[in-house]
Design a protein around this nucleic acid. Structure first.
Lengths: 114, 114
DNA sequence: CTCAATCCATAGACTCACTATGGATTGAGG
DNA sequence: CCTCAATCCATAGTGAGTCTATGGATTGAG
């Protein structure tokens, strides 16, 4: 079996965090801790969202009107702040997905020219 | 013919600029202006590297020992500062290409779950 | 009862790209 | 000749955004 190794941390490029959060919330409203867990799981633990990045990001998204926040109780009776995507947030998500794809294509055209 | 339109500017994600510069210099030594032109051309004008981003980036790369700088004359007899990749720079390039690919894969696994 | 996990959030440091600016040189077109 | 666009260099200041470090409260398992 392979030797245990560090969990291959991929540094987050600034600008991708909003995209990841919006996408996560497009599935269902979720609280901060849950968002971080969801991103970590789906990425196979490659992406680790720090709380010091997450909460400021959520504030930004709220200010821009892309998400709403509401205190609720978790299934385990814990008090948590649930964030939900607004219609504007959904449009923004589509826009950011497209921008990300274009950027990746552009960078690849330089890194791997035909 | 298509109507003239704005050149579809893709905002550069922080961290990708070094990668683009290193890759460009891996072909042949080049001066700043040439680097910007090369990236713009290969990306189909999608990426536009501003001089205010480029020169500070070149300083960084030089400080880290990934490129060297040398004054020379262009084929058109203009004085220009030619930058060249060092062996450490080449290793860094390989590392950044790999990191970029991993990041893209990780983000996509969240944005487009199987 | 203790400790890990779950949940929130802020402050400060730091990296890095962008705008704005400034300057020098060359060649083409008038 | 003169002007202007293109070629080349570079810095200062700003602002966006992520990270580390920190702090605190609650719940359940052992």
């Amino acid at each position: 079996m392979a030797a245990p190794r560090d969990p291959l941390r991929v540094e987050l490029l600034p600008g991708t965090l909003d995209l990841l959060i919006l996408k996560t919330l497009s599935v269902t409203p979720m609280h901060g801790y849950g968002i971080a867990g969801h991103i970590g799981r789906l990425s196979g633990a490659a992406l680790r969202v720090e709380e010091g990045s997450l909460y400021p990001a959520l504030q930004r998204l709220k200010l821009k009107g892309w998400v709403t926040a509401e205190w609720r109780l978790t299934p385990t009776k814990r008090r948590a702040r649930y964030y939900a995507l607004t219609p504007a947030g959904r449009r923004q998500l589509a826009h950011e997905v497209s921008a990300f794809d274009q950027l990746v294509a552009a960078v690849r055209s330089v890194v791997r020219p035909a």
